[in-house]
Computed example of a mutant assay.
Amino acid sequence: MKTTRSVLVSLFAAALLAACGGAAPEPKAPVEKAPEPAPEAPKPEAGGEAAAAGPDAEKVALCIATANAKRAKFSGEPPKVTVRHILVKYKGAKNADASITRSREEACLRALEARDKLAKEGADFDEMVKQYSEEPGAASRGGSIGAVERADVVKPFADAAFELSVNQMSDVVETDFGFHLIFRTE
């Protein structure tokens, strides 16, 4: 996985340099190394879900890493923020209904799909809440949980919510309840 991650970082850096007018490094090494991780993907043999993910294994790994990125409390942050969110649950998540059968990896990818529809395709947040959120009553509230203080929500949610500017959406964030997309309204 580290090889794959370094390849992705190299490709991203090359694209960024090219977009900024810098000289992009030769893509020979990343292109040659890219096929190497493929044989490693089926490694989890004992019923591992990563093996079932197949070609999406890299996408899943990146999604999980993003969702669990370290965030910290900012100095000077407001005492409260008003937020809306989309919650995608998975089997075994805290308060997940018995009807939820998707894996953690599938839930992360589902949250990522909702994020992409919102950020890249300009989808309506209320519609995405109706389509993706599995929090009881979320659809009727547009995903709103109102004004919250840090102490009102779990730490990963608070850290992500309080780092947002007004009218900004977070990336995928994981808590014990599942995967969230958080949109700060005030």
Rank of each mutant, 00 (worst) to 15 (best):
K2D: 12
T4K: 15
V9S: 10
S10H: 10
L11Y: 09
A13F: 07
A15K: 13
L16D: 12
L16I: 05
L16R: 06
L16M: 07
A18R: 15
A18Q: 14
A18W: 15
G22K: 09
A23T: 08
A23I: 08
A24E: 05
E26M: 03
E26V: 02
P27W: 03
P27I: 04
K28H: 07
P30C: 02
A34Y: 13
P37S: 02
A38H: 12
A38F: 14
P39T: 01
P42V: 02
G48H: 11
G48A: 10
E49H: 11
E49D: 14
A50D: 13
A52P: 00
D56E: 12
E58G: 09
E58R: 06
K59P: 00
A61Y: 11
L62Y: 10
C63F: 12
A67P: 11
A69H: 03
R71H: 05
A72V: 00
K73E: 14
K73W: 13
G76V: 01
P79M: 06
K80D: 03
V81S: 10
V81I: 12
T82R: 11
T82Y: 01
H85I: 00
I86R: 06
L87Q: 02
K89E: 09
A96T: 13
D97T: 06
R102Y: 01
R102L: 01
S103Y: 02
S103M: 01
R104D: 03
E105H: 13
C108D: 05
C108L: 11
L109D: 03
L109T: 04
A111E: 05
L112N: 03
A114C: 12
K117V: 03
K117L: 15
L118I: 08
A119H: 07
A119T: 11
K120V: 13
E121T: 02
G122C: 05
A123G: 12
A123L: 02
D124W: 00
D124I: 05
F125L: 14
D126E: 11
E127N: 11
A139F: 11
S140M: 13
R141C: 02
I145K: 07
E149L: 01
R150S: 10
R150W: 14
A151S: 15
D152K: 09
V153I: 06
V153D: 02
V154W: 01
K155S: 07
F157P: 00
A158H: 10
D159R: 13
A160C: 06
A161R: 08
F162N: 08
E163H: 04
E163K: 06
S165V: 01
Q168H: 09
Q168T: 07
S170T: 09
S170A: 10
S170I: 09
D171S: 14
V172N: 14
V172L: 15
E174Y: 08
D176F: 11
G178H: 04
G178W: 06
G178K: 02
L181M: 05
L181Y: 08
I182N: 03
F183G: 00
T185Y: 09
